[in-house]
Amino acid sequence: MAFIVRRFYSSVIEKTVLISRSTDVFENLALEHWYYRHSDFTNKSMLLLWVNRNCVVIGRHQNPWLEVNFDPAIDVRIARRNSGGGTVFHDNENLNMTFFTNRDIYNRKQNLELIVETLKDEWNVVTEINKREDIISGTASKLGRPNAYHHCTLLVNCNRELMSNLLKKREKNIETNATVSVTSDVLNLTQINNQVCINRLMTAVGLQYLKTVGNATTINQGFNYVTPNEQTFPGFNEIKNEMESWEWIYGRTPKFNITVKCNEQSVILSVKNGIIENVATACNISLNNLVNEKFNMNIVEEIKQHLKTIDI
């Protein structure tokens, strides 16, 4: 009987699976960006697997104050990635996968099909790719020239309660043209099959990738562990510093207006590049000292306190 292996990216000459040793979101995002910037994927295809400690990752054109419920009691890091799309929660029970290719052969659907196949073969878990090209969790891409990548997440057994507290939509009175997240029901893979664990998932996805990418003559570089640092990746620190900077995480927020309401009074703040540009209010209070300040949620609380003291 003929045995058919469904191949994809058949033109690539070399393929490899990398596993990051870091669990720091900024290090991993910087590593991903470093590969995007410095690699030649003309004949090479690469899958990077990475896991982060608790963090929220917003899309490139999103508003963190709209997407994330800031709670001083919750210790969680917020990062902005370079790709489009919506906000996701990561913890050490969530696997991130980045498929790097040349832009010309970039194919998001095929990558997702590979994951669906893996889950079916390994655990008999049947998943579907919906219209938004999601499975279990999120998917997003960055398309440049000549390189492109598609990354996506798989929830194995992540803390859904924490995720919900951080990301559940609340009325924030923010008016913006930024990309807004679409809330989806998420499911941990362990809820379908409690045998799924993150290490086995990494191995299974990696093996499936090495099995199906390229053709019979493609050089198989197998699995490799990488430690993101300046020594191995010159220029790494600069990218990481930018990823961690206020200017990137908050300063890149698309222009927005936020209305602060309290005591039947309201104040409208106009924020551009994360900086308060204008304060508008009908009340008899002076808030001009806020102009040119970096916006944050404490300012909103301060304004509410101010409004409470006004006699109507």
């Binding site: 490139r60 054109h61 790709s83 489009g84 090209e133 020239r145 990309t179």
Partner: peptide, 9 residues
């Protein structure tokens, strides 16, 4: 430019 969850440079 962002479209269907992709940022194109």
């Amino acid at each position: 430019l962002e479209s269907v969850k992709a940022a194109s440079e």
